[in-house]
Amino acid sequence: MKKISLIKKFEILEKEFHGIGNSIIQPHIVSNQKKYKTLLKKYRKLEKVVNIYEKYKKKLTALQEANSILKNDSDPEMKEIAYLEKNKILEDLSNIEKKSDDLLFSTSPTGRENLENDHRNAIVELRSGTGGDEACLFVEDILRMYIMYFKQVGWKYKIIHAQKGGIQGYKEIILDVSGKEGEGVYGNLKFESGVHRVQRIPKTESQGRVHTSAITVAVLPEIKDIEMKIHLSDIKKDTFRSSGSGGQHVNKTESAVRLTHIPTKITVECQEERSQHKNFEKAMNVLRSRIYQNEKEKRFKERSIKRKSLVSTGDRSVKIRTYNYPKGRVTDHRIHKSIYNLVGFMNGNIQEMINFLKLSEKNQ
């Protein structure tokens, strides 16, 4: 069944490849440089798929020949050669199928949408939800979890904005996370977007009852200035004194910045730097990413894409994960996967869960 399904996918992309091949030689396409470059890039990607398909078809033909010899030939030597050849062909076909999974996913429409930003750095936003002070404490716990994960994989992070909770923890904290080129920070962290629920006995609970609290995580791809131009006339800028730590300078000068994008009403604050200029730059960085994500979500709705699961959709209104402290278990509800090492998970060992989510995204 897998071979039939794979061949159908190959045939669809082969037809698309030949269609683009005919299009890029047309004068009206050649004269439109932007469209020509886009189609040429797609053509080269599909060319790799078609080349693999040709190899795949040759192997299938060779398999038929080997099976025919095994079935019809009476010569024992020929049968032994055919048997050995068949095993080698089956191994080659398996390798081609494994290689094809990644390639076909990246060239399919949904795959391209899911993967188009995977190479980017990321903006990570954590916000307390239901649960009052306990939710603020959990924001701090999840922040620590991510920081320990970043250290494991060698990524850097900067705090862009932080709002302390009433007693402890954070109501909101925003991070800029970066890695080396091609490390795919967003490609790993995008699965964290959604509602994270915690079940545990709060420190303030005198009767030992388990409470349920929740926080939201939003992971956005970092968008550079050259990729998205925002007109300054569309931005309302307010400055105010920082309410956070940072010494006398921060608290005495209006270095904190609040930006409001008038067309979308998206608002961003930044007060972590002593310089108003640096806070403005950081706020603009977050604003670009939020506007980009806003546009992307609108585009998805217009195309009426029906998602089979919430893996990597970035839907922050849906419960994605539960951290159950009494049972020492963390469960991801999108893939029905539980890990019974909550302590290790909270110490940054989250890559195993991310790998399961990546696999689920591929198999959608």
Rank of each mutant, 00 (worst) to 15 (best):
S5E: 15
S5F: 13
L6W: 03
E11A: 06
E14W: 02
G21L: 05
G21P: 02
G21H: 06
S31L: 12
L39Y: 10
Y43A: 01
K48R: 12
L63G: 01
Q64V: 06
E65T: 10
K71V: 09
K71M: 13
N72S: 10
N72E: 15
D75W: 07
E85L: 05
I89T: 04
L103F: 08
S106G: 00
T107P: 06
P109W: 06
R112K: 14
E113L: 14
A122D: 07
A122P: 06
A122Q: 05
I123G: 03
L126Q: 03
R127F: 10
S128N: 08
G132Y: 03
D133K: 00
A135C: 07
C136Q: 11
D141M: 08
M145N: 04
Y149W: 13
V153S: 04
I159A: 02
I167T: 14
Q168V: 12
G169E: 05
I173C: 02
I173L: 02
V177K: 01
V177E: 01
V177W: 04
K180W: 04
K180Y: 12
E181T: 09
G184Q: 04
V185H: 00
Y186A: 01
Y186R: 00
N188E: 14
V195N: 01
I201L: 08
T204Q: 06
S206Q: 13
G208E: 11
I215M: 12
T216Y: 06
V219M: 02
D225N: 08
K237E: 15
T239R: 02
R241E: 06
N251T: 05
K252Y: 09
T253E: 12
S255V: 07
R258P: 12
I266K: 03
E273R: 00
Q276H: 04
N285G: 08
R288H: 05
S289G: 06
K296M: 14
F300M: 12
R303K: 14
S304Q: 15
R316F: 12
S317H: 03
V318Q: 15
K319P: 12
T322P: 11
Y323S: 04
Y323R: 01
K327G: 08
K327T: 14
G328P: 12
D332F: 05
H333R: 05
R334N: 08
G344Y: 05
M346L: 14
N347P: 08
I350P: 14
E352G: 03
I354H: 07
E361P: 02
K362Q: 13
